[in-house]
Design a protein around this nucleic acid. Sequence first.
DNA 1: CTGTTAGCGCATTCAT
DNA 2: ATGAATGCGCTAACAG
Lengths: 339, 339
Amino acid sequence: MPNRNNRPTLSDVAKLAEVGTTTVSRVINGGQHVAPEMLARIQRVMTELGYQPNQAARSLKNARSKTIGLIIPSITDPFFAHFAAVVESVARQQDYVVLLLTSHDRGERELVDLEIFERHRVDGLLIAPPRTGSKALMEQLKRLSVPVVAIDRPLSSQNYSRVLCDNYLAAQHAMQHLVKHGRKKILVLGGDPNLYTIRQRVDGCVSITSSVGLDSIVEMEAADYPSAEAAIMKRMKQKGGIDAIFALYNQSTIYAYEVLQNHGIPVPQRVSLIGFDDFTLASTLRPSVTVVGQAVADMAKTATQLLLNHMSGETVSPQQIEIATNLVIRQSCGCPPST
Amino acid sequence: MPNRNNRPTLSDVAKLAEVGTTTVSRVINGGQHVAPEMLARIQRVMTELGYQPNQAARSLKNARSKTIGLIIPSITDPFFAHFAAVVESVARQQDYVVLLLTSHDRGERELVDLEIFERHRVDGLLIAPPRTGSKALMEQLKRLSVPVVAIDRPLSSQNYSRVLCDNYLAAQHAMQHLVKHGRKKILVLGGDPNLYTIRQRVDGCVSITSSVGLDSIVEMEAADYPSAEAAIMKRMKQKGGIDAIFALYNQSTIYAYEVLQNHGIPVPQRVSLIGFDDFTLASTLRPSVTVVGQAVADMAKTATQLLLNHMSGETVSPQQIEIATNLVIRQSCGCPPST
DNA sequence: CTGTTAGCGCATTCAT
DNA sequence: ATGAATGCGCTAACAG
């Protein structure tokens, strides 16, 4: 006797199995305190009817939607795509489903995303915030009133856990590596300077150049090929020029590579190249590209599990976790081919 | 006077605004038939309280969850990542949110995914099925009883709309292009032969080779680098060898490229290469890689809008839409550099 | 234009 | 071990 949706309800099951709704409910929730034969009978009826509990009803009753919200800049960015994949797989093991929204690193959009999640009553939130925390963002997060874990970039409030990578250290290592190769005029090719990650990386770079007594050459404009080209070639043509580039994120690495290639500048002979963040064909290009590798899967798994812990009720204090990066040596930095 | 979740409810708003719940409900749903001052007053109270409607309650009442389910093999596959990005952006414009689940092209997992969606009562489904339709899958889809649009690969039932690309034609074009370059021994490097897309592409290839009177050389084992290498080198070493490779999907293209590069086989002089599906660095590699480009964004937008149409209630008959591909000429096929 | 009321499907006291 | 009844937050009749 299904309802208007022709979908069977719990009470349909109860009726057909000739039991009370309570018992059916118990079966749905693990079947404790239910006689074995009863349990079997109800389960039979459930499969017979093709019954599946209505999550909306359960959410209303339990105040738990069994969803977690994920806000990332973009799902086409390989780093975040990988991240999202891991989140999905960890979440589903705990019977959670992921609501995915993108922010394109725009604060207003992020606020809208949070509003949507508020309506959908997500039980927890993973967010890679473009800014560490405007007032509006912080208020919105407080209103959401669910556990939050910041990923890749922190939130300004210490109340929220964060899972990041060691941007500062990683940048230092990369710069030191270039210095070891004897490079003296290293162009640090930036990205959006408002992003925490970028700022940390720049700071790491500067700490090295200044401690070693080199000039700090930083260009932040590299949002697309033309601007990257302009920035690089401007520096190339200056007196002294440059002999290395450290590109601070995925895309700028690729632009830098293309610029050098298109201008016939030999890598690494004339200019060394290191990029932040590994990418699919980094080892296939000739020369292959040395990069700072982030342990994405590790970060994502850690963040999701941490969030689930926060959600479990036992009050876990906010944590700040930094996942180590590793320099993936290939040939664009000047190292000899391995094997 | 918030409830146990400390979240205000509709009736909290009603009380504070000293109106009935119906009026508040009307405001939430567009504010028709509400006096202007009343509307303003209620809206003020809503923002004051930070009220957001509880979607679970609305779902229960309206039998619409405002979610659409998306099942793809993997979110790290650039093709599907791009697809998902477009789905999200189109869906959110209509106030829908996307529930993302991956199948890894495994039928059992797909069934579980559908069960999860059934509980969450998605209002519509986009699915890239690994197989065109086992009995179990078809039953599960019928039970879901919401509009379904198959993407990238069809479902066997004519009852479901599908948005595909013209795999057969595209493969023919690619092969004809290689033939025009005078290639006579073209290796078709396959993928999972159970996938509809792969089968169509193989068929397209064979139709050309046989109509032109060439041998059909097909290798389906290219799931990873070693097997791709084995397949390619086996053919290379045979009497006559091969003078071109048409790789039938994203990954196999990359493997093929790497194999040729690692074995020092000059491309396109000795062996031409064309791949199915464009990828980020295809134009950056040297030689750049000629590919069959799929209009991903177009496919995704079309599919999502079609789904939303189906969901809108007006019964739209199932449609079969094929989005045209285009051969992106670069240098690995043997064409001269442009400009 | 506005308010009262009765469920949507489920979990949960509190009985038995 | 089981069942009857209540309410989660919201919308849709119906009045008025």
